[in-house]
């Protein structure tokens, strides 16, 4: 089940939604042609429910939004970048397991 707690962000609202968010934000850069990106979707949804209120989980489609991935030098997806107070805390590239994603999120909590 897709979680309603996951926000879809784009180039124009990235600064307000992610950089300016009071909560730490995890951004999942993905694209519809990327199998591993789609496959980690259910894990991202579970994390959004489990960490509700502690972290904002967002997704950005890199096909529709070229500017932000370019700014962060993304050349491989899925890439997940963790932001806190507008700064990059850490990032992971590749379809990693749920545990590694929890470890990543914990770096901002």
């Amino acid at each position: 089940m897709a979680s309603d707690k996951v926000l879809h962000v784009n180039d124009s609202d990235f600064d307000t939604t992610v950089v300016g968010n009071a909560l730490p934000c995890l951004v999942d850069f993905w694209a519809p042609w990327c199998g591993p990106c789609k496959a980690i979707g259910p894990v991202i949804d579970e994390l959004a429910d489990e960490f509700d209120g502690q972290i904002q989980i967002t997704k950005m489609n890199v096909d529709d939004n070229p500017a932000t991935p370019g700014k962060f030098g993304i050349r491989a997806i899925p890439t997940l970048i963790l932001f806190k107070d507008g700064d990059v805390v850490d990032k992971i590239t590749g379809a990693v397991g749920k545990t590694q994603l929890i470890d990543l999120i914990n770096k901002a909590l």
């Binding site: 199998g35 591993p36 496959a39 894990v43 379809a95 397991g97 749920k98 545990t99």
Partner: peptide, 11 residues
């Protein structure tokens, strides 16, 4: 553990 499908996903 995460992305169900493993290597097939990258095909």
């Amino acid at each position: 553990k995460g992305a169900a499908g493993g290597q097939v996903l990258t095909t």
